[in-house]
Simulated scan of single mutants.
Amino acid sequence: MNKQIIHTDKAPAAVGPYSQAVSCSPNKMVFLSGQIGLDPSTGKLEDRSFDLQVKQAFKNMICVIEASGASLDNIIKTTLYLTDLSKFETVNSIMSDLFPKPFPARTTLEVSSLPKGAKFEIEVILSM
């Protein structure tokens, strides 16, 4: 397996022992680590509203996707983590405005907590 680490300064640095994303060949697949709503310039969590935190997480995700040489069209699977599943429709609304059709497969989970006190996290798998 040919493994390549993907990193961009346009998204927050890893907050633990992991990479922002890893790709592998020969059929290039890219596995993004979970992205939360950290502002990459300050390293602080977007905490003004849930909507803004979700949008920042998506911005971070897009920056890592672009660093891999891909686009939103390459996403085949998403996993969403929310600390409050009652916010599910808010995330759906933001995603439907951002993601191109046909939409990727998705799993959504409610979790008790996320790193840095985030309320939302997204991870994706890309196929290129």
Rank of each mutant, 00 (worst) to 15 (best):
M1T: 15
M1S: 15
M1C: 08
K3P: 03
K3S: 10
Q4V: 11
Q4R: 09
I5K: 07
I6Y: 12
I6N: 06
H7W: 12
H7I: 04
T8I: 10
K10R: 07
K10A: 03
V15L: 08
G16S: 12
Y18G: 02
Y18D: 00
Y18T: 01
S19Q: 06
A21R: 02
V22A: 02
V22N: 01
C24K: 08
S25P: 00
S25Y: 07
P26R: 15
N27C: 13
K28V: 09
K28P: 05
M29E: 08
M29L: 13
V30A: 08
V30C: 09
L32T: 05
L32R: 04
G34Q: 09
Q35L: 05
I36T: 03
I36G: 04
P40G: 03
T42P: 05
G43W: 08
K44E: 14
L45P: 02
L45C: 01
E46S: 05
D47S: 11
F50T: 04
F50C: 06
Q53L: 05
Q53E: 15
Q53T: 04
K55N: 08
K55R: 15
Q56F: 10
Q56I: 10
A57L: 01
A57I: 04
F58R: 10
K59M: 04
K59N: 15
I62N: 15
C63F: 14
C63K: 10
C63G: 02
I65Q: 13
I65V: 15
E66G: 05
A67G: 01
G69K: 13
G69R: 14
A70D: 13
S71E: 06
L72D: 09
L72K: 14
I75R: 00
I75F: 01
I75N: 00
I76V: 15
K77G: 04
K77N: 14
T78H: 03
T79P: 00
L82T: 06
D84Q: 01
S86T: 14
F88E: 14
E89R: 07
T90Q: 07
N92V: 11
N92T: 12
N92D: 13
M95P: 00
D97W: 00
F99T: 03
F99S: 02
K101C: 06
K101N: 06
K101D: 04
F103G: 07
P104R: 01
P104Q: 08
R106C: 11
R106Q: 12
T107I: 14
T108A: 14
E110R: 12
V111C: 10
S112T: 12
S112N: 13
S113T: 11
S113D: 13
L114E: 11
G117N: 10
G117P: 05
G117W: 13
K119T: 11
I125Y: 04
I125T: 08
I125M: 07
S127V: 03
M128Y: 09
